[in-house]
Each structure stands twice: as C-alpha cells, then as structure tokens.
C-alpha cells in the first residue's frame, strides 16, 4: 500500500511515540532536527556508550542537547513525565530497556498532552507499549549508489490513527530547509 511519508513524519505533536531497531537513535536525531527547542535525552548512567555530539552536529546544534543520567528506568520515567508535562523542552527522548505497562504509557501520553511536548521512547524490538501513538522500526540499509549515505528503512509498525507503511529514507544535510532534508528514496510494497 502506497502512502506519503509527510502525513506520518514528523510524528504528531503532544504524543509519545516509539522507535526500535538498529537505527532508532538515527531516527531520533532526524526527528529532533525537525523540531524546535531543546532536546532532553534520558539514559541510564551505567551505559558505557556515549552519544557523540560531534556526530549529532550535522543534524542539529549540540548546544540544544541536554542529557539526564538516571539511576534506573523508574527514575527515568519520572523525569520524562516531568519534562513532558512542563513543556520547557521541545523533545524528550528516553532509552528504555524494560517494557512499559499500560498505566505508565498512558501517564506519559497525558503528560505530553498537558505540556504540548513530543516524547520518543527508544525501545528494543517486541517491547512496545499499547499506549504509544506510533511505533517505528528503523534499520540501516546498505546504499550501493553512494558513500557517506544515511539510507535507512523506516517501517511504521503501529499507528493509532492511520495505516502502516514503510519507506527507504535518506537524510540530506545539504538542503537549506530542514523540512526537505528527509528524502524518500523509494516506497517498498509491503
């Protein structure tokens, strides 16, 4: 089924969405680059890998990025709810490693609605919550045509208000208008 990416992406404001797959972080920075305001990234402090601001610089100004290091997921969800409800930051991205139950997911949705902020949970596969507005599966794809490519396959695998579809997408840093930097290469037939 054919569908236009622009009707689904950037995702609906004032909701919490989910992304999974190997390129979920790439999806998150592309999404953050299309939004105004600060980006709050919530991650657990034991993680050894770091988000490299030099790597995020082509997508958005790293001065907009704030990182909150939390002890465990409960604390992380509390911080996420607080930040969503407050609305002082534009985007809240949280890395989750345990599935959300319906109550927690719903609380995040309500907080996002109150604060008019968009949340994005980075999850591993098969960990999605029923309360999420949309869920995206994002995988990097080898691009035979060009080097320095950011070709990814984005599959919309859950959508509360619309159809499911998937796209091959590349991010083009040279376009002046941020809205046009996401280039749809092709739409695979599901």
């Amino acid at each position: 089924m054919q569908s236009d990416l622009t009707t689904h992406f950037p995702m609906r404001n004032a909701r919490v969405h989910e992304a999974c797959g190997a390129a979920a972080l790439g999806f998150a920075v592309v999404f953050a680059s299309l939004r105004q305001g600060h980006v709050l990234l919530i991650r657990e402090s034991w993680r050894a890998d770091v988000v490299n601001p030099m790597g995020a610089a082509p997508f958005f100004d790293p001065a907009r990025l704030l990182v909150a290091f939390v002890k465990d997921q409960t604390e992380g969800l509390a911080v996420m709810e607080e930040a969503l409800r407050d609305g002082a930051v534009g985007t809240v991205i949280a890395e989750l490693n345990k599935p959300l139950d319906l109550t927690a997911g719903r609380r995040l949705q309500l907080a996002a609605k109150t604060g008019n902020t968009t949340g994005l949970c980075l999850i591993s596969e098969d960990m999605g919550s029923n309360a999420a507005e949309t869920r995206w599966k994002c995988d990097p794809v080898f691009d035979p045509n060009g080097s320095d490519s950011t070709l990814m396959r984005w599959s919309l695998i859950k959508n509360k208000s619309g159809t499911l579809c998937s796209w091959y997408v590349r991010w083009n840093p040279y376009k002046s208008d941020p809205a046009h930097r996401v280039v749809v290469v092709s739409t695979p037939v599901n």
Binding site: P62, A63, V67, A68, F69, E75, V79, D86, A88, V89
Partner: peptide, 27 residues
C-alpha cells in the same frame, strides 16, 4: 521566559536525580 522555564525544569529534575546528572555538551 523560555530559558527561565528550562532552568526551572532543570531544578525540578535535579531535585530528583541530582543537579549534576543533567549535563550538556561543550565543544
């Protein structure tokens, strides 16, 4: 006011997880 709101948010989150655990990157 946007900056003020952000500082207030950092204060509130900092009261929960510790003020030094909210970090930003500098070049």
């Amino acid at each position: 006011s946007k900056q003020d709101r952000l500082d207030d948010l950092i204060t509130r989150i900092g009261a929960r997880i510790g003020l030094e655990n909210i970090q930003r990157f500098l070049p």
